[in-house]
Nucleic acid binder design. Sequence first.
DNA 1: CTCGGTGCAAAGCGTTTGCACTTTC
DNA 2: GAAAGTGCAAACGCTTTGCACCGAG
Lengths: 154, 154
Amino acid sequence: MSQPESALDAALEKLREQHVRITPQRKLILDYLMTHENHPPVETIYQELAPQMASLSLATVYNTLNLFVELGIVIEIPNENGGVRYDFFGRPHYHAICENCGKVTDIYDPNLPQIDEMLQNTAKTQSGYTFNSSHIELYGLCPECQAKGITLAS
Amino acid sequence: MSQPESALDAALEKLREQHVRITPQRKLILDYLMTHENHPPVETIYQELAPQMASLSLATVYNTLNLFVELGIVIEIPNENGGVRYDFFGRPHYHAICENCGKVTDIYDPNLPQIDEMLQNTAKTQSGYTFNSSHIELYGLCPECQAKGITLAS
DNA sequence: CTCGGTGCAAAGCGTTTGCACTTTC
DNA sequence: GAAAGTGCAAACGCTTTGCACCGAG
């Protein structure tokens, strides 16, 4: 068999290890998530993949995404309109979210591991929780919306 | 039990400044949020307040909470089941969230302002966003669920 | 060959909305 | 008195579910 040269293969291997069946649909959706930085909502994923797999159903997209979230391959980002966006979480990062247009930008911060540890230490001391993941979101205005002269209500 | 200078009055004053009408319903809901650390979902808020104001409608609770979020008085915390919990945000803090029982515990960290600044600086440099608020959630197991011997699937 | 996954359509459920009435400022 | 908020119920839209068929292991 081929070496896991591609990130997709590596991710599929991870699925196999967890005894999750690899179907064309799951492969397709995983590949989509890995190659799109746009943090798409479910409907978008479905619409963009439907042409490539005519029979793909929306329910399968939902089911698959929920599965990936449970497996920790993907994380959910809350969407102002009550919806959810999905983000392939191959490398730890946090998010800059535009409160005007809803855009989500990944931030890769070399200090993140240390910051994360500080947060978890403090939280563990204060609350007694044990942790295994962190989500950080910064809310503000993206450059484009700033340029439009938009200011925030609050 | 309310003095002229209570936290509730201060918050109401803040509403007045933003030209938001102060109704008995808004007062009631705001007071509830300020005096309950349990990060309740909408349905809970409604059920606990209904006895105190027989005519209160669920729609008003929704409308009011949305208003408070827009005004920045309250923040939303994503709830695993697609729902949302509400948290009066009087003092900056972050959250420890139990992945098993869903409990949300506030963490008040003296280093939070500095950490926040670091995050925002890095993010601003990388993305060009301007920021005005941060949300941090740490996911894990609360002490009670640890005691039950629960371990996480992922 | 077996069990899990998919597709379809219907059901579910939290949230929003339209309209008439009431209340705040 | 005018504009905004409330309550009720219906409408909405996203997500889940039941069931029969299909395909991965």
